[in-house]
Write a protein that binds this DNA or RNA. Structure first.
Length: 1006
RNA sequence: GCGGGUGUGGUGAAAUUGGUAGACACGCUAGACUUAGGAUCUAGUGCCGCGAGGCUUGGGGGUUCGAGUCCCUCCACCCGCACCA
């Protein structure tokens, strides 16, 4: 075996690395997981055994967890699920000979820390630091093999300096549609100088046209305005939720039912200047390169839907008696002759211009209503049709008929052109709208349209449509586009639902923009025009320390209040900060070279580690983080900073671990007579009684009688015979899961939970059965539901190895399931049982050097095969089962042989690393078990040569018969048909067919 | 509303390619050992039935010698929807 230092870091070999050898921890010989885990955690730390080198001849493998936001609540048992899975895979890959990068860090900027700061006055940096320390402690507790020397935090100035740097690369770039990649803005300027923008249409303003001479006449400000509309990171306008009462901008999830979540104040949309990323230019590449990724189909489908590519046409309608025109996007140009009205988004900028005088009041009233509506409400409200007529008419481009123009909330300004052509006979929403407002409907589907429901199917022929009549929908689509192009009124067009990503937040706790406004023109701090000293630039690029976190005036972020920071000698700094996804869009690159001060990561590091081979995290990031990261990676690739254009090759989604809530049922007794004293003391009713009462198997007076039988106090307080004079209610209340064992309430603990419960009357199941049973329900794990289980508690009680294995044993990694602490006993018992193969409580180590038997080797090699394959396909629950089967078999065989047990200790290392380490060393090996090779199985121990076949008659299995796997069908047929059970089931009938599937089953058909 | 996911014993689940449904555990029942048991071990445990046997993978229908698995249809629950991260 090579010296241990070979496997350790070659950045620097830590002192003591070579001392990693047999440590003679002295436990008595039962499975003392507390001592074992404590000692090995220390040994791992002392020797930096999990440090990873960038410089090795070994093949690389990059395994990444979605890094957590360090919330104040700490980790609950649901969070580590993915981390355990990736840790198992990382250890497995390492034992398979790979150089494995497996880092961890923190997504440390975010709203909750800022909110907390507002409430308590504590600086987010301080609380974040505290939360991170807690997270680290919890993570360390579980025994992960992270290389912590590579930790990143997005809120660290040394980190976000590079987030800002990447933002500036995007600011200094434009998207070249001909080359289909991002390029430096200088290349665009030289194109403008030579030929204007005829060949490079402006993505921010398709109508913008200028030639080289005109460009030359533009002022500096005009030029920068034009360039801004090409930049990948650009400044534009968008609406945000504005709350006047709180004086602040609110996030979507801070707005509930049209009012602010805090305080319930009214909110409305406010238009503000904000930064955006031109992700729409990447739409096509983001769709097409999904094919190269090993992600679940569901995840790819979600991204495809999010990007929402649709083929269709743009059609321009001229307004009657006006210069204005309305351009609509439609996926159904074939229905052009079925257009009965146009609908424009109510917030569209020129609604006011086209509205007729007599409709003005109505339109404005409607616009006001829409301002209070969230996008989701607007999309999902289908029963209630709303809208307003503008009084304007457009001219149909082909048949020249006048078409009324409406506004309605179901058309969104951000999608397509913000206007649609409505075809009631072919679209459900248009149909409902036309019916509701009594707009006459043109039928272009003949008998296919019944007048009651729109005909939205894509089968059939178009009718009543001039030159399109009689054509199939497909043919009509092509011909309609041709006609529109010929008449100059339209063109075919690919539309994406994807919108440019809003990149501004009116907050404090985020990356500041390295942008300064010189006479209201934004400049990047790194541009030569910004004449600040390097020191000043550094100061203004960094988030200033503040005392107060209250928002700035007019919806500006809190930074607007920091005079010393916001004002520079050349102009005012941008006061917005970047959103949460800024730092997380590229963090996987930083782990490759985390301490680099001159680049975000060196070329050597990024070209060695390349993309993440395995990324594990939740599905909730399906379209946010995962899409933005992909775009950033593509942009960095285009600009030549990295040599790959996808960040995450394989993605595994972990399911949620839900909470298992427990309920007690409080009996609330209100005397009907107002003058009587209400009954104040708490009474709790056990679950079965609650169920009986709820199902009306128990009357009010019977319930009171039960309570009275149970308690003297109650007897004095309520008169049971007068059940009628009370109003009863049984109220389910969450009870902390730590006060419950399974579903049985720990009554003393419950009484001590709250002062007011000290003397509570607790009515158990019955006179005989004195247990109080709680109700149970599966819900999301959250503090308010008292169902949070802290991994620290589980680790303290059962050990990290048990915890790790149990989380895996719960079920498939990608499925959501409720946590049940009770079930952990089985896994703990298994580890103890495995331990007893090596140690006897009295005599200590019982491992012998005797050669193993065939049966023992069979058990071992089947397990090597199965667990290896299961790890490869992320089926960790079945791997754990296999370990149980193996240990059960070896226990039955009374096997204590080194030949078997040494390999078993290595096998279990990914799952139970502490125990594996202990066993490995107690068997006399030096060095960490992680440096051992994952064992290979021998074919001869895993192949069987006979098979017990189920023999079925007419598909129903009736008997089991054993045959050699290479047996001839004729022999099998003869023996099967001679079998007495089969003869009985044949009932004398002739077999019609004899089905024999080798290695599977036999079926006789009569 | 749109998109995605999941439905199998009392519970978590297994069945990798259409081939013995319920592996492995939890829980429960009975027993052994023990001063004791929240330790350990043994046996049983999908449902109905004394039994022979029948039924059973959310409901209904279909394809097949054979369906948890494929197809159609209906239902229930969970997640995401662009400023939570």
């Amino acid at each position: 075996m090579p010296p241990l230092s070979y496997f350790c870091s070659d950045f620097h070999i830590p002192p003591g690395a070579n001392d990693f050898r047999l440590k003679t921890f002295d436990y008595n010989m039962e499975y003392n997981f507390r001592e074992i885990e404590k000692n090995w955690k220390q040994a791992w730390k002392d020797t930096d055994i999990y440090k990873v080198s960038n410089d090795t001849s070994k093949p690389k493998f990059y395994i990444l967890d979605m890094f957590p936001y360090p919330s104040g609540a700490g980790l609950h048992v649901g969070h580590p699920l993915g981390y355990i899975a990736s840790d198992i895979y990382a250890r497995y890959k390492r034992m398979k000979g790979f150089n494995v990068l497996h880092p961890m860090g923190y997504d440390a900027f975010g709203l909750p820390a800022e909110q907390y700061a507002l409430e308590t006055g504590q600086h987010p940096a301080v609380t974040t630091e505290k939360n991170i320390a807690r997270y680290r402690e919890q993570l360390d507790n579980i025994g992960f093999c992270y290389d912590w020397s590579r930790e990143v935090r997005t809120s660290d100035p040394k980190y976000y300096k590079w987030t800002q740097w990447i933002f500036l690369q995007l600011f200094h770039s434009w998207y070249d549609r001909q080359e289909n990649k991002a390029r430096p803005i200088a290349t665009l300027i030289s194109i403008f100088e030579q030929e204007g923008n005829a060949e490079t249409p402006c993505p921010g303003n398709e109508a913008l046209r200028f030639d080289a001479d005109t460009w030359a006449t533009y002022s500096e400000k005009e030029k920068r305005d034009v360039l801004m509309q090409y930049r990948i990171a650009y400044l534009s306008h968008a609406e945000v939720w504005w709350c006047e009462a709180l004086g602040t901008v609110l996030a979507n999830d801070e707005v509930v039912n049209g009012v602010s979540e805090r305080g319930g104040h009214p909110v409305e949309k406010k238009r503000m200047r904000q930064w955006f990323l031109r992700i729409t230019e990447y739409a096509e590449r983001l769709i097409s390169s999904l094919d190269t990724l090993d992600w679940s189909d569901a995840m790819k489908e979600m991204q495809r839907n999010w990007i929402g590519k649709s083929n269709g046409a743009e059609v321009t309608f001229h307004l009657q008696d006006s210069e204005k025109e309305i351009t609509v996007f439609t996926t159904r140009p074939d229905t052009i002759f079925g257009v009965d009205f146009l609908v424009v988004a109510p917030e569209h900028e020129w609604v006011a211009d086209i509205t007729a005088a007599e409709q003005k009041a109505e339109v404005e009233k409607y616009q006001q209503y829409v301002k209070s509506r969230s996008e989701r409400e607007r999309m999902s409200e289908v029963k209630q049709v709303t809208g307003a007529f503008t009084g304007a008419y457009a001219i149909h481009p082909l048949n020249k008929k006048p078409i009324p123009v409406w506004i309605a909330e179901y058309v969104l300004a951000g999608y397509g052109t913000g206007a649609i052509m409505a075809v009631p006979s072919g679209d459900d929403r248009d149909h409902a709208f036309a019916k509701h407002f009594n707009i006459p409907i043109t039928n272009i589907f003949g008998e296919l349209y019944n007048g009651e429901e729109a005909y939205s199917s894509k089968e059939g022929k178009i009718q009543e449509s001039d030159f399109l009549s009689g054509l199939s929908i497909k043919e009509a689509t092509l011909k309609a586009i041709d006609a529109l192009v010929a008449s100059g009124a339209g063109k075919s067009k690919v539309n994406y639902r994807l919108r440019d990503a809003g990149f501004s937040r009116q907050r404090y706790w985020g990356e500041p923009f390295p942008i300064v406004y010189v006479d209201d023109v934004p400049y990047a701090l790194d541009e030569p025009e910004v004449t600040l000293s390097p020191k000043e630039k550094e100061k203004h690029a960094q988030l200033p320390l503040v005392e107060k976190y209250t928002p700035g005036p007019e919806g500006q972020g809190p930074l607007a209040n920091v005079d010393d920071w916001v004002n520079t000698s050349v102009g005012r700094m941008e006061t917005n900060t970047m959103p949460g996804y800024a730092g997380s869009s590229w963090y996987f690159l930083r782990y490759m070279d985390p301490h680099n001060d001159s680049e975000f990561a060196s070329k050597e590091a990024t070209s060695y580690w390349r993309e993440v081979d395995l990324y594990i995290g939740g599905t909730e990031h399906a379209v946010g983080h995962l899409l933005y990261s992909r775009m950033w990676t593509k942009a960095l690739y285009d600009l030549g900073f990295i040599s790959f254009d996808e960040p995450f090759k394989k993605l595994v989604n972990q399911g949620m671990i839900q909470g298992s809530s427990r309920f007690v049922y409080r009996l609330v007794i209100k005397p009907k007579n107002q003058n009587k004293q209400p009954i104040e003391f708490p009474i709790f009713i056990s679950w079965t009684i609650y169920e009986n009462y709820r199902n009306k198997r128990l009357s009010d007076s019977e319930l009171l009688e039960l309570v009275n039988q149970h308690s003297i106090e109650a007897h004095y307080a309520i008169a049971p015979d007068k059940g009628d004079s009370y109003e009863l209610a049984l109220v389910p209340m969450h009870v902390d899961v730590s006060l419950v064992e399974g579903v049985v309430l720990k009554i003393d603990a419950f009484r001590n939970w709250r002062e007011e419960y000290k003397k509570a009357i607790i009515v158990p199941e019955g006179i005989q059965d004195i247990k109080y049973i709680c109700g149970a329900e599966v819900e999301k794990m959250s503090k308010s539901k008292y169902n949070v289980v802290n991994p620290d508690d589980i680790v303290a009680q059962y050990g990290a190895d048990t915890f790790r294995m149990y989380e895996m044993f719960l079920g498939p990694i990608d499925v959501s399931k409720p946590w049940d602490t009770k079930g952990i006993e089985g896994v703990h018992r298994f580890l103890k049982k495995m331990w007893r193969l090596y140690f006897d409580e009295q005599t200590g180590l019982v491992v012998t050097e005797e050669p193993a038997t065939e049966a023992e080797l069979k058990a071992l090699h089947k397990t090597i095969k199965k667990t290896g394959e299961d790890i490869e396909r992320f089926s960790f629950n079945t791997a754990v089962s296999q370990f149980m089967i193996c240990v059960n078999e070896l226990s039955t065989l009374n096997c204590h042989k080194r030949e078997v047990l040494e390999k078993l200790a290595i096998l279990i290392c990914p799952f139970a690393p502490h125990m594996a380490e202990e066993l490995w060393n107690k068997l006399g090996n030096s060095g960490s078990v992680i440096t051992a090779s994952f064992p290979a199985y021998e074919e001869r121990y895993v192949t069987e040569n006979t098979k017990k076949y189920p023999v079925a008659v007419n598909g129903k299995p009736r008997v089991e018969m054993e045959f050699a796997l290479d047996a001839e069908q004729s022999l099998i047929e003869k023996e099967v048909l001679a079998d007495p059970t089969i003869i009985k089931w044949l009932e004398g009938k002739e077999p019609k067919k004899f089905i024999y599937v080798k290695g599977k089953m036999i079926n006789v058909v009569v």
